[in-house]
């Protein structure tokens, strides 16, 4: 069972629809026990970083998600959900993220001559061999965001060139982040979600 974290953010239903379409067993939940027992966890998100962290705090989910990561459960953060996995957001001083992947979240500079938000289909370039990221190599996926993550090169599995290098897939052990929306990225997005499902199944197998 994959649990989609339910904390009042916009696009959870579309993610659920994509997993349902793929026949992947999933449920929306904010329940501590259910999340801790999940085979895989997906943290979606759109909107503002601080508001999202506050919403996770209100539901007592911050420690639960840290526990999930620690116990080795495959975890996928999508868009803002990916950014929440990082340590913090510079623009908002002491607003801390979940600190599951070391790095920061910064605004896309406004002086690059590119439009902000970064909205539309952009091409991923593979940076590290990884079964999930390989699905997206040279493929276009759908992005909508104004902030991006900065992290060490070894954690960047794929990136897009948008005047700056924007990491599109990051990974630290069992925790993966996707800056784009796989649930809105057509066949390639669905293939990426299928790979995550495989990762969940394999992890489940190895735990038994």
């Amino acid at each position: 069972m994959i649990i989609i974290i339910d904390y009042d953010t916009g696009n959870t239903r579309n993610l659920k629809k994509a997993l349902d379409f793929l026949g992947v067993e999933n449920r929306l939940s904010a329940d501590r026990d259910e999340i801790l027992a999940a085979d895989g966890v997906i943290l979606p998100g759109v909107g503002a970083f601080k508001k999202a962290m506050d919403a996770l705090e209100d539901r007592n989910l911050v420690d639960v998600l840290r526990e999930v990561a620690k116990q080795g459960t495959p975890m996928l953060g999508i868009c803002l959900g990916m950014q929440l996995l990082l340590i913090g957001r510079l623009e908002f001083g002491d607003t801390k993220g979940l600190s599951l992947i070391s790095g920061e979240v910064v605004a896309i500079p406004s002086d690059l001559g590119v439009k902000v938000p970064h909205m539309g289909w952009d091409q991923n370039n593979l940076k590290q061999p990884d079964p999930i990221a390989e699905v997206f190599d040279k493929q276009y996926s759908y992005f909508v965001h104004s902030f991006y993550v900065k992290t060490a090169p070894e954690r960047i599995l794929a990136s897009v060139d948008y005047g700056v290098e924007i990491p599109s897939i990051v990974r630290q052990e069992n925790v993966i982040g996707m800056q784009f929306h796989p649930e809105k990225s057509g066949d390639v997005g669905l293939a990426g979600l299928t790979k995550f499902k495989e990762m969940v199944s394999n992890a489940d197998y190895s735990r038994n």
Binding site: N14, A18, D20, F21, E183, G189, L190
Partner: peptide, 8 residues
């Protein structure tokens, strides 16, 4: 549509 078609 959104349950069968996965694009914006």
């Amino acid at each position: 549509v959104a349950s069968q078609v996965f694009m914006p």
